[in-house]
Design a protein around this nucleic acid. Structure first.
Length: 608
RNA sequence: GCAGUUGUAGCUCAAUUGGAUAGAGCAUCUGACUACGAAUCAGAAGGUUAGGGGUUCGAUUCCCUUCAACUGCACCA
């Protein structure tokens, strides 16, 4: 890199990371110069279709409409007033009714490549977006005493990806596993446990020693079916529940045991998915924090008594109004005085506010619970307003159902839920067959690791690469497939890049190589560089929508652009300057691909 | 019954929230390994965006309507 008159340091400081944001700024400055009414003008810069350049700004059209001007004239006035910093980044053209098309100058691409050579450089450039904010991400949240099944996949995978993406953008993230560890079911489990202890102690202890969670899950089913059939057992279960809730040491010990083995079993799956929670504050944690909520809700007039229960109506919303045809209030305390889902969720919001000082709380939960969250958020809004607290941004990241190929929720042939453990194992087995077939030369132990990374990564990626709010059809063939928008395709591109650096005995980002790079020249080189600099846009879009499929799509396109480049332009050429500039492109591609895949929660491979 | 969501190529999905000629992959068809990994690449074909109407410079996107599927509706989470 040649030093500019201002010196290399200031050049680095001023290197543009997010071109769309810089163009946005430039256009706003131009609008001021041109005398636009800034209240009506939003540049609306976005990534453009390739035939229109790198970015397009549509804002002059909307502005002209509102200000009753000719859109093309407005566009011309903007272009004439663009500051020199903007013109140093891109070439501008006016097209059609008044679109502004920007094509980045090769020099701007070169500067970007030079300025962001490492993951920490990307991270610090990205971290301005959410710096200083605290975001709680509430995800996974299985029930104890039950194994995780396929229905728990999406929350875990999407939640982890969102947590990583938001953290990369500079937020302090609190990952909270809001486990279901409290409720009426524990009376039945404890009854069944004690029953098994009395009738066949040896079998119980053996089962608890080998597969504890499976055994508690079995006991729950036993308790459930027995209590359904026998009123005396139902009554006995209720009594066990009351003892548990009033702090009976024996029942508390059993309940703790259930929680411990459950969390330990969950962690094995989380390890595969790259998940580590900061907090595991389940429903039981909020048990003693609920009464204060009732008091405040009543005192502030937000809640009222109805049919013996404590409820909140939202009369301004026809769906939750007391005047609705079939009123559907938010029940925050049941008529029998017990807490429910709503009670603990309200206590949880307060805790996240006071304890973590959360600016945002994201709930990664099945979209079928949309009504619940809508009522919860409306209620919290009124409650916090009445008590003078600042409400965090509350958002339900709803997701669709995983369907089988018959279009019904995915189940085993017997109609049971597929255990998440089994699903990930099957994915690993399928990947293993492929690895054995294609890479028989790799040692056995490494093939096992590769199979796990490809198999589990395929499941994660298949989930993340679709818009989270729609249902999706689970198809093994498509998921483990090596082609198309799949984990294997991306991991293969990464493995090839590692392989290249191994073969050439080169190190990605080696300054001695990079300083020898000549300017980008071929169409494939320029296309790859253009795609690389869009990393910031992919991040921005993913954060704005909290939908990881935008990041997936970008990485897939980047891998495709790279593969095309790699076929068209040979890297290991004689000319040292050409070789150096292509190696630099390869190093950045590897960096962005791996950084992006890690943000999604996937592990990457040096060979496969 | 009321409400919500969804409907895009044969199949599985996108479309930056109103932007330009609606894009990918799979499957199909043509090509490219004496080649830095062919788990790859280049190309072709595939569409009345469920149907109809409206709003405007512009609609898959907003409004109305019909049809279809799914989901939620007082003490489960």
């Amino acid at each position: 890199m040649r030093a500019s008159p201002a010196g290399p340091l200031s050049q680095r400081m001023s290197a543009c990371f997010h071109f769309a944001a810089a163009l946005d700024q430039g256009l706003k400055a131009a609008a001021t110069t041109a005398g636009f009414d800034l209240a009506l003008f939003d540049p609306d810069v976005r990534v453009a279709a390739a035939q229109h350049g790198d970015f397009q700004a549509n804002g002059s059209l909307a502005y002209a409409k509102q200000a009753k001007q000719n859109p093309r004239a407005a566009a011309q006035a903007l272009v004439a007033a663009l500051p020199s910093e903007t013109l140093a980044l891109a070439k501008v053209e006016i097209a059609g009714p008044g679109f502004l098309n920007f094509t980045l100058l090769p020099s701007a691409l070169e500067t970007w490549l030079a300025a962001f050579p490492t993951e920490s450089a990307l991270r610090s450039a990205s971290s301005a977006t959410l710096a200083g904010q605290t975001w709680v991400v509430d995800y996974s949240s299985p029930n104890t005493a039950k194994q995780m099944h396929v229905g728990h996949l999406r929350s875990a995978v999407i939640g982890e990806a969102v947590a990583r993406i938001v953290a990369f953008a500079g937020a302090r993230v609190v990952r909270d596993n809001h486990i279901g560890d409290w409720g009426t079911s524990f009376g039945k489990i404890i009854w069944a446990y004690k029953h098994a202890l009395a009738t066949d102690r040896a079998a119980l202890e053996a089962a608890l020693a080998s597969t504890p969670l499976e055994e508690f899950e079995r006991l729950y089913k036993v308790g459930n079916t027995t209590a359904d059939a026998d009123p005396a057992v139902l009554e006995a279960s209720r009594a066990e529940l009351v003892k548990l809730q009033s702090g009976d040491p024996e029942n508390i010990a059993i309940w703790r045991h259930i929680g411990e083995v459950s969390v330990a079993a969950f962690q094995k799956i989380y390890d595969l998915l790259g998940i580590r929670f900061d907090e595991t504050l389940g429903e039981s944690f909020y048990n003693d924090k609920v009464p204060a909520v009732y008091t405040e809700m009543l005192a502030s007039g937000v809640a009222e008594e109805s049919q013996g229960a404590l409820v909140v109506f939202h009369d301004e919303n026809p769906r939750y109004s007391r005047h609705a045809e079939r009123p559907n209030p938010f029940i925050i305390r049941k008529a029998d005085g017990a807490a429910n889902y709503a009670s603990t969720d309200l206590a949880t919001i307060l805790y996240r506010h006071t304890q973590f000082n959360a600016d945002a709380a994201l709930y990664v939960v099945d979209k079928r619970q949309g009504d619940h969250f809508e009522q919860l958020f409306l209620t919290a809004q009124k409650w916090f307003a009445a008590t003078g607290r600042k409400l965090p941004r509350l958002e339900h990241l709803g997701f669709g159902t995983v369907l089988g190929e018959d279009g019904r929720p995915l189940k085993t042939r017997n109609g049971e839920n597929i255990k998440l453990k089994d699903l990930l194992q099957e994915a690993t087995d399928r990947a293993r067959r492929l690895v054995d077939e294609r890479s028989a030369d790799i040692p056995e132990a490494e093939r096992a690791t590769i199979a796990e990374i490809v198999g589990v990564g395929s499941v994660q990626y298949a989930d993340l690469s679709q818009n989270r709010s729609s249902d999706y059809t689970f198809a093994w063939e498509k998921m483990i497939s090596l082609e198309g928008n799949t984990a294997a395709y991306l991991l293969y591109a990464v493995a090839r890049l590692h392989s290249l650096f191994r073969k050439l005995d080169a190190r990605p980002g080696d300054p001695a190589v990079e300083s020898a790079a000549s300017p980008l020249e071929t169409a494939a080189e320029l296309a790859l560089a253009r795609k690389l600099v869009q990393f910031a846009d992919a991040q921005q879009q993913t954060i704005a929508t909290l939908r990881p499929h935008f990041l997936c799509l970008y990485l897939y396109e980047l891998a495709g652009t790279f593969s095309a480049f790699y076929t068209a332009d040979k890297v290991a050429v004689e000319d040292p300057a050409i070789r150096a500039r292509r190696l630099r492109l390869c190093a950045r591609t590897l960096l962005v691909l791996e950084t992006g895949l890690h943000l999604l929660g996937l592990r990457t491979l040096a060979r496969m």
